[in-house]
Design a protein around this nucleic acid. Structure first.
Lengths: 211, 211
DNA sequence: ATTGCATTCAATAATTCTATTGAATGATGA
DNA sequence: TCATCATTCAATAGAATTATTGAATGCAAT
């Protein structure tokens, strides 16, 4: 590739990157979806999206610069409509990629859950039965923020990524029951696996906090 | 739309926005194109893209987080290959959008050149439309002092009386749009005349900075 | 003309992204 | 086991984005 070829190629990628950057904000994607369903005024869009008027206006102008939308004035209002360029197919492709990734993650999770069935789970019933039983420690491996917004009574909180270096906070002579957000959260499974390698008798709670 | 619907919708858009953000960088797009043509090692990609190794690695991991690429180790090297199917169609759609916009701009330029006189002016509307178009250079011919107190974004400053000996600073392959103070300032007109005798495709901005 | 209203602009603080540096990791091959 | 090398991590400074505020614009109805 010659220098000038490389340069023009780079310019091409810059333009594409600018377009992608415009889509790289969830508010703008939301506005774009709203506009897809029909021409709308700025204040309408602000209302529907929950953004301030000024902020909405700025996002709309960003979208306009990328030709994702066009605008026209109608009386007092400026109306935005979807752009003519292959915007819709780009949005569809983006959505398809996201969906593909979600599917990938779901598959990954169910995998880890298959393996993890070996790591004996504890049911909610058994948990309740042993709730006041001092032989068991309830461990919440979610973030401190989630924990502070609500947790099971008596639980202690050590986020998963801090677990390894805070092992000393856990009593060696009690069973550990770990839980996290819910069925599709793999945090507690990992915690249990880690604790078992370190010699604890650990299990996880089927379901999780949400359930 | 219920609250939980809105919330899940928002999460969906966040995921899509993250994907788009990953594509919103020309280096990453370039790396992605290189990988599209075949599995490659990190140092190879760094070499081809002209980025440092560490920087390349980070961009690759960013791409990997979005599932645009996968990686595997082969001996001493980590090889990156393109991710699963929807990636290519997303890239194609992005490229199509960019091409569409280029065509739109080209149409705009040829229009104005067909209709208008050689020394025809460029309107503020057209200027705005082409503001981010790399095919155009905005030239401020006022004094350095005036320039430093405020100028149009992206403009370069060469005072009129220095123009002739600083011609080399102007790119030959781009349109020049000159501006000065306002409607009653003749500086930019003179600049345009000079540039045209030297072979540039130059126009002046109707009005000027004050307007 | 003047007033009212929807929209845009401008300036800012806060957040996020990028490139660079040097150190840490981890698999390989002696 | 040890040394080597490709890659990754971590920390940081600089650059870019975002949301907010309040002011400016520009149309339209009076």
């Amino acid at each position: 590739m010659s220098i000038s070829e490389a340069a023009s190629k780079y310019q091409l990628f810059s333009e594409q990157a600018d377009l992608a950057k415009t889509l790289g904000n969830s508010h703008r994607l939301f506005l774009l979806e709203l506009i897809t369903k029909g021409e709308k005024a700025v204040d309408q869009l602000a209302e529907l999206s929950g953004l301030s008027i000024a902020n909405t206006s700025q996002h709309l102008q960003h979208l306009k610069r990328s030709s994702f939308v066009y605008s026209r004035r109608d009386g007092k209002n400026v109306l935005y409509r979807i752009g003519s360029s292959p915007v819709l197919s780009l949005l569809a492709a983006l959505s398809a990629c996201a969906e593909h990734n979600r599917a990938e993650i779901r598959a990954l999770i169910s995998d880890t859950f298959d393996q993890k069935d070996k790591l004996e789970a504890i049911s909610r019933e058994e948990l309740l039965a042993r709730m006041h039983d001092a032989s068991m420690v309830l461990l919440d491996v979610r973030t401190e923020e989630e924990f502070s917004q609500g947790h099971l009574p008596g639980a202690i909180n050590i986020p998963l990524d801090e677990l390894e270096r805070r092992l000393t906070e856990l009593p060696q002579d009690q069973d550990i029951v770990a839980y996290c957000r819910g069925t599709y959260c793999a945090l507690s499974g990992k915690a249990v696996a880690l604790l078992r390698t370190k010699g604890w008798n650990a299990r996880h709670l089927t379901g999780g906090f949400i359930d």
